[in-house]
């Protein structure tokens, strides 16, 4: 495999896991604009554990995801007290606080960044991406996933139906924290170096776009969104500086044409084998 292709594939895996982290809470009706903050926590945690403490990566990566999940769990309580645009702002502020903290903490290298030892192979990234994808599909098929989707549709009615909405949202935020943290840890080991400036607001916006443009209704959405956002900019490389313009226009067009995302629930239903056969039978009779 060429180095270029392998590099793109690695980015795709990291982006996909990152996107699923944001998707899980978005599916439960919470827009998380602090993605970069969680990713930074994962990246620095594994960097510290594997680098400074010298522990093996098979320990540091899961530990980083766990730490990120735990921080997600802790901040879920104050953050989820806010609603709508304030929730978005609260998560955004969280992301800024994390990168600001890392930038000014010498233990983590400050503005100099941090060298992360142990490069991980591509197959590890791919395995992680596949596992996270399957886990997300599984989650969305469970009763917990049903409750999450219900909250996204009508939170007030979901409360009256008897769902512990707050607990479901905290769970979604925590799982999201684990996934985003994992993506950060993988990023750190893939590049061998992390710096706080990388985990900025633009990154949080990008990953949110992966999810919203891809579609937040089903677990297919982040897959479509990550592919679109990772592969397309590569294809437009030939366009030079204009590629950002083309890309921006494409994003706006997508929002206009498919406001609910590239992959919607109805689309998945239509394309599902069972429905397809049902339609064939209906036409035949």
């Amino acid at each position: 495999m060429s180095g270029y292709l392998a590099g793109t594939l690695a980015i795709l895996c990291i982006n996909l896991i990152f996107a699923y982290g944001i998707f899980v809470s978005a599916a439960a009706g919470q827009i998380n604009l602090g993605g970069a903050g969680f990713q930074a926590i994962g990246a620095y945690a594994t960097g510290f554990i594997a680098g400074t403490l010298g522990l093996p990566v098979w320990f540091s990566i899961p530990a980083a995801a766990t730490i990120s999940a735990f921080i997600g769990f802790l901040i879920a309580f104050p953050v989820l007290r806010t609603r709508g645009v304030y929730l978005v702002l609260a998560t955004f502020a969280f992301g800024e606080v994390v990168s600001g903290f890392l930038l000014h903490t010498d233990t983590f290298g400050g503005a100099m960044g941090m060298v992360v030892p142990v490069h991980i192979e591509l197959w590890v990234l791919m395995l992680c991406a596949i596992v996270v994808t399957l886990l997300t599909f599984y989650l969305m098929a469970t009763r917990l996933g049903l409750a999450m989707r219900s909250i996204n549709d009508d939170e007030e009615a979901t409360v009256v139906i008897g769902v512990n909405v707050r607990a479901v949202q905290v769970a979604a935020f925590t799982i999201g924290g684990a996934f985003t943290g994992l993506s950060g840890a993988l990023y750190a080991h893939n590049y061998g170096f992390v710096e706080a400036q990388y985990f900025n607001a633009l990154l949080s916006i990008y990953v949110l776009l992966f999810v919203l443009i891809g579609g937040a209704q089903t677990a297919w959405g982040p897959l479509a969104g990550s592919l679109f956002f990772t592969v397309l900019p590569e294809l437009f490389r030939v366009g030079g500086a204009w590629r950002y313009v083309i890309f921006g226009v494409l994003i706006v067009l997508m929002m206009v044409i498919r406001p609910e995302g590239m992959v919607t629930r109805d689309l998945v239903r239509k394309l599902s084998p069972r429905q397809w056969w049902a339609r064939r039978a209906a036409v035949g009779s």
């Binding site: 469970t142 009763r143 049903l146 989707r149 219900s150 549709d153 769902v163 629930r265």
Partner: peptide, 26 residues
């Protein structure tokens, strides 16, 4: 719930019957 199917809407009503982590993760 507009984005849930007929059966999903109805099964949502079972939520309080399905207690425990096992039922939630089924």
């Amino acid at each position: 719930m507009p984005h849930l199917s007929v059966i999903e809407n109805i099964m949502l009503g079972q939520h309080t019957q399905a207690s425990g982590l096992g039922a939630l993760l089924q």
